[in-house]
């Protein structure tokens, strides 16, 4: 009922763990796999070991609106990540290796290493909104996006996903620049910040961070809808999915799978099972037998 195929990879359900949440250590990734996720995307891994920013790295928005974070791309570095991937694969679901680099050369190297380690696909992080010289700073430049995607595509045999930023007015142009990718992942967090009025200073140590959770869902749904209309690409939707209806919303906009992150903060590790059963319940009630019948169904033609 919930099976889906993205870039030729078969997932038992469309609910994948988003990059950056509970996916630095293999044990956590295995735990999420066993908790009902259809697939896992790793923390973004770079060339060198990075500690990330100092605390505060996260800010909890009031009233369940979401989270603001600036972790600063902490990661053990690609050379230290082999065992984590090797072990994460024991979770029994597809593992997508997320990587970040400062230029095409770094992305190329990281992709090849990830492929050697045995991941099922690569996710190019072209969209982290708070790391200088990385992510979004590259991901808003169509030429750079095109170069990185094309170079990586030429040199690995596994599917390549490009995760794009919403922090641009030209997301369709960026998506078209990434058209050689096997799938597009939309969206990363939205660049934002918070000031503590009593302290009279920004909360995050890095000042700027990425906004996630329910408050960004309409931005994500819009991005998926828009890009699905304008390109023929396969899309993975992400941003603010908290329940089955949210996941269906993304799918109806045009996503074949979705990623879940901040919902773990709100609903716990069991959220994958819960969302899957909420989707099944809706589908039964509405006599939909396969999720693919719903992909892009809300597009106004």
């Amino acid at each position: 009922m919930l099976e889906t195929v993205v870039s030729g990879i078969r997932f038992s359900n469309p609910l994948l763990l988003a990059s950056g949440i509970m996916d630095e250590t293999a044990d956590s990734m295995i735990r999420i796999s066993k908790s009902g996720a259809g697939g896992i995307v790793t923390k973004s891994i770079g060339m060198e070991e990075r500690e990330g920013y100092e605390n505060p790295v996260v800010y909890e928005l009031p009233n369940g609106l979401g989270l603001l974070n600036a972790m600063g791309l902490p990661n053990p570095g690609i050379e230290n990540y082999k065992n984590e991937i090797k072990n994460a694969l024991k979770g029994g679901v597809p593992v997508i290796g997320s990587i970040f680099g400062k230029d095409a050369g770094e992305f190329l190297y990281l992709s090849k290493r990830m492929e050697d380690y045995g991941v099922h696909a690569i996710e190019l992080n072209l969209s982290c909104p708070h790391a200088k010289g990385y992510g979004m700073e590259i991901g808003v430049d169509e030429n750079l996006v095109e170069e990185i995607v094309n170079e990586v595509k030429k040199s690995v045999n596994i599917p390549v996903w490009a995760k794009l930023t919403p922090n641009t007015h030209k997301i369709v142009d960026i998506a078209k620049a990434a058209e050689k990718a096997d799938a597009l992942v939309l969206i990363n967090t939205v660049r934002g910040m918070a000031i503590d009025v009593d302290a009279r200073v920004p909360v995050l140590k890095n000042v700027y961070g990425g906004l996630s959770g329910p408050c960004i869902k309409p931005i994500g749904v819009r991005a998926v809808y828009e890009v699905y209309r304008e390109t023929q690409k396969e899309i993975v939707g992400v941003g603010g999915i908290l329940n089955g209806r949210d996941a269906l919303e993304y799918i109806m906009a045009g996503a074949k799978a979705v990623q879940i992150g901040t919902a773990i903060y709100y609903r716990g590790v069991g959220v994958f099972h819960e969302i899957a059963s909420e989707m099944r319940e809706w589908m039964k009630k509405n006599k939909v037998s396969k999720i693919k019948e719903l992909v892009g169904i809300a597009q106004v033609r």
Binding site: E24, S28, K43, G52, V57
Partner: peptide
Amino acid sequence: KCGIGICDSCTIN
């Protein structure tokens, strides 16, 4: 780091 279960920093097994 985060204190709220998302970043995987304090995870043991």
